[in-house]
Design a protein around this nucleic acid. Structure first.
Lengths: 229, 229
DNA sequence: ACGGTTCGTTAGCGACGATAACAAGCAGGG
DNA sequence: CCCTGCTTGTTATCGTCGCTAACGAACCGT
């Protein structure tokens, strides 16, 4: 048999799969957990305390799911995968997600700092790969803010904002801005082709190596890594 | 003397400036509005009905504030200004904002479609100026989702996400991606300079006009407007 | 065996959302 | 004028909620 505290947390989590957190009566929790009402207040002091404890457990699951995400060689692709797993978690546990990311009153779960820390590490891998254009802190918070916004809108107004293409658009926008958007390369590449064509038509000589041009443009690009004032 | 309905709405709005919506007792509303309790239920049928009515009034103020925003010649700059006024409104009316954008239960205010419509018009002005890279609908929803996310995180976790620089970073990211980021022009411009230098060194002739190259690159860019499959 | 801690049970308080029942005012038509 | 119908105010009450007090039973180490 599990302890009373564990049963209360588990029962709350199960009821949270059906109703919103504030719509769950403590008596229903006690019934399901086979516990008397005072046990909740002995263990958590408050209903808010119970809910924040549940939110923290939710964060633990959330972060465990993110840690289980394998790291590929491309840290930017890992950022995208983390974004998608975030959205999937929100859609799979809507009420728990709202409890975690829109705390009521002054009951802010402190586990969000850990989520930010994990994102920070993922962003720092991008920086180490030379693919970050701002401070890791600002980058991580930008991604998390936009990610939460997409999830909240998808949960609150699914008919208008539930489209997965919306999530992908915002994801590519913010990740692309934070890291060096790979479209830059293709665009500069097309300008390179243009330059090659110009050289070819104007001189009739063989075009310059694309690798040479790429090296030159990369040299021009790196100073942009410093944050704007 | 105003009608009972107006007094109830006004009283609720005033109390909403101090507490969260769900923490406001209907009796406090009745006391302040000088109304008996049944009046609320005669007018709005429900507390949810009252709150959604208040949320709709909040949307009206929100949209009026946006409409008051003057239109400059640069539609992209107008998008940025709209983003900033959105954030300012959220920080000025935190509880009302949460009531508007994170509805409880099934009480979704329908006024959000109007907000999306206004954003849509602002985005279409960008498209008419040739500065849009996706469908206006997707663009508007992307901006609104990210905007709401920044506001919600700033309200819920101000010590971590209250930095205005964070709002600006996400704003520039999503607006830059949706419209044609002006950095593209500068980057392509530098590549153009590179091409000019190449042409100059390899041939010794006068470089091609930058306007000609810009016209060519713009011709290559427009097909990207079509949404990805 | 004993005292302290944890857990379960009952009962109850005060506040809340919501409703019923009824009275007061005020319109317009006979 | 009264009668009728509608909106507004008043009081009382119901059921539920979060929360607590009081008491008792089980457990555990010394």
């Amino acid at each position: 048999m599990s302890t009373a505290r564990e049963r209360i947390l588990e029962a709350t989590g199960e009821l949270l799969a059906t109703k919103d957190a504030l719509a769950i009566p403590t008596r229903a929790i006690c019934d399901r957990a086979k516990v008397g009402m005072p046990e909740i207040y002995r263990q958590f002091g408050d209903k808010q305390g119970l809910l924040t404890a549940v939110a923290d457990i939710g964060f633990a699951r959330f972060l465990a799911e993110k840690r289980r995400n394998p790291l590929t060689g491309d840290p930017v692709a890992d950022l995208s995968a983390a974004w998608d797993s975030h959205v999937a978690f929100a859609l799979r546990n809507p009420h728990l997600y709202r409890l975690m990311f829109t705390p009521t009153g002054d009951a802010k779960p402190q586990a969000i700092k850990e989520a930010q820390a994990i994102l920070l590490r993922a962003v720092e891998r991008c920086r180490d790969a030379g693919r970050l254009r701002m401070s890791p802190e600002l980058a991580g918070r930008s991604i998390l803010s936009a990610n939460v916004g997409v999830c909240m809108m998808a949960l609150s107004f699914p008919e208008l904002f539930g489209d997965p293409a919306l999530s992908h658009a915002v994801r590519d926008a913010v990740i692309g801005k934070v890291t060096g958007d790979e479209r830059e390369d293709t665009r500069i590449g097309s300008a390179t082709l243009l330059a090659q064509a110009l050289v070819g038509t104007l001189t009739g000589t063989a075009p310059v190596s694309a690798a040479d041009l790429e090296r030159l443009t990369r040299a021009r690009r790196t100073p942009d890594t410093t944050p704007e004032p």
